[in-house]
Structures are given as C-alpha cells and as structure tokens.
Design a protein around this nucleic acid. Structure first.
Lengths: 115, 115
DNA sequence: ATCAAGTGCAACCCAGAGGTTGCGCATATG
DNA sequence: CATATGCGCAACCTCTGGGTTGCACTTGAT
C-alpha cells in the first residue's frame, strides 16, 4: 500500500507539480467537480483556456506526483483530485519546519546559558 | 507585520522555490548551521558543489518566497532558514487537502442517499 | 458502416531557469 | 596604503517546461 508519490520519497516532484498556476487551476477544477466520477482531459480543456494536449501533460505530471488519480471508462479517462496526498505533503512540510524551529530555539538557549 | 511571502498571497512562488534540489540543500545546510547567526553565500558555496553566484540566485529566490531571511553584517550578508514559513505553508496545504476530501465525502454521501 | 468524440504520440517553438565566467565595487585586515 | 575577502551586476550558454499543431488510433453513437 505504500504507493509512491507525494506521500513517499523525495517530495520535490510534488512541489514542482504545484509550482504552476495552470496546474493549480486544473486541480481546483477537479476538486470542485460535482460528479465525483472525475473529469476528462477534454472536459477540462473546455473550461480552461489551454489545449487538451497541454491539459493532458499537466495531468500526467500531477499523476506522477501522486496528486491525481485516473480511471479509464470506455474510451474516456476520468481524473480525480487526491486531497489526501496534499494533506500528507502539508503535514510533511509542517514537521520539517517545526524541526528547524526547535533546533534553532535549542541553539539560542545554549547561547543564552553561555552568556 | 503582514509581510508578503510564503504565508500570504499565492503560495505558488513558494512551491516553485521548493521545487529544486539544490535549493533544498541550501535550506537544509542553513537549517543545520550551528551558528544561529546564519551563513553567507560564500560559506554555502564552499560546502556545496556550485558557484557562489548560483547560490546567490537561489538565496534570492528563497528570500522572495519568504523561506529565508538575510541580515547584512559589515561586508557580508548572513542568511537564516525560516522554519516557521515552511510550517505555515504546510498547514495551508493541509487545509486545502482536507477541504477537498470533505467535499468529496459529502458528495459521496448525497449519492448514497439517492441510491 | 459511417461519423463523431476522446485519446495518445510526436515534432516543433519559445521563454525562462540553473549554471558559469568575468568584471567592478565595497569592506576588513596586514 | 596594499591586499585579500565578500558581494552584486551582467553576459552568456544550455536544457527543461509549458504550449501549440498535426496526425493516427480506438470507441461510442446513428
């Protein structure tokens, strides 16, 4: 069950995936989809001002990063946003930041006792 | 006090800043610095396999994203990693992911009652 | 059987990012 | 004063990323 993606390994790929405005628009459009069955690349291309092929590339990046899931239904491929992956990545960032802070605080405390 | 950066506005810039391996190395090197006074670009360039100018560019990106702080001391400029910014960004991601999940769960619940 | 819709793959274009070298300027230090 | 250290700016190179167009393939609809 330890699927590779945003929740494992180096998260740099996930950050790269999140570092593009269009990709965020895609993600948010997917997240706000009422169908719960997902949207196809063509459907997304209808709502966004970019080509279907561009959307397809973005979806590929997002899927590689583990931020999106796809399911093939007949001739079409439906994509769904994975909020859990985002949450996991966020928690990870949080922990790293906390670690840095506590380390800094510890050093500051030591420096104070030396004074 | 509402300084722009990772904790305000669009976080895309912060993700772009975190989407590079070298930049992570810089951040981690800064975070593991024992001085608590920060490191200069030259000091970082000594420990990393890239030029000082490259480091300087990375530091500029990180500072713009609000992930790093700089302090000029005489002729040198010391940089410190801001763990709090990382933590804030992480929390933000977490909340977005949670929102997507709850929305999806709600839709699933509605679909179930319709069955 | 024909036609439309949806996809995938490939080539191509162009702007921007990461990196380098080279220079000039400011600031400690002998 | 002379010298070494640290920095900033600018030019340049190369490669990747976002985007497009074009075409061929599958699958559902008529």
């Amino acid at each position: 069950m330890v699927s590779p993606g945003a929740s494992a390994g180096s998260p740099v790929a996930a950050f790269a995936a999140l570092a593009d405005e269009t990709r965020w628009t895609v993600l948010e459009t997917l997240a706000q989809d009422d169908g719960a069955t997902g949207l196809t690349a063509s459907a997304l291309a209808d709502r966004l001002p970019v080509t279907r092929q561009a959307i397809a590339k973005h979806l590929a990046v997002l899927e590689t990063a583990g931020l999106v899931e796809s399911q093939t239904v007949g001739r079409e491929r439906r994509y769904r946003a994975l909020g859990a992956a985002l949450t996991a990545l966020g928690r990870r960032l949080e922990r790293i930041g906390d670690a840095w802070e506590t380390r800094l605080a510890r050093i500051a405390r030591i420096a104070e006792t030396l004074t």
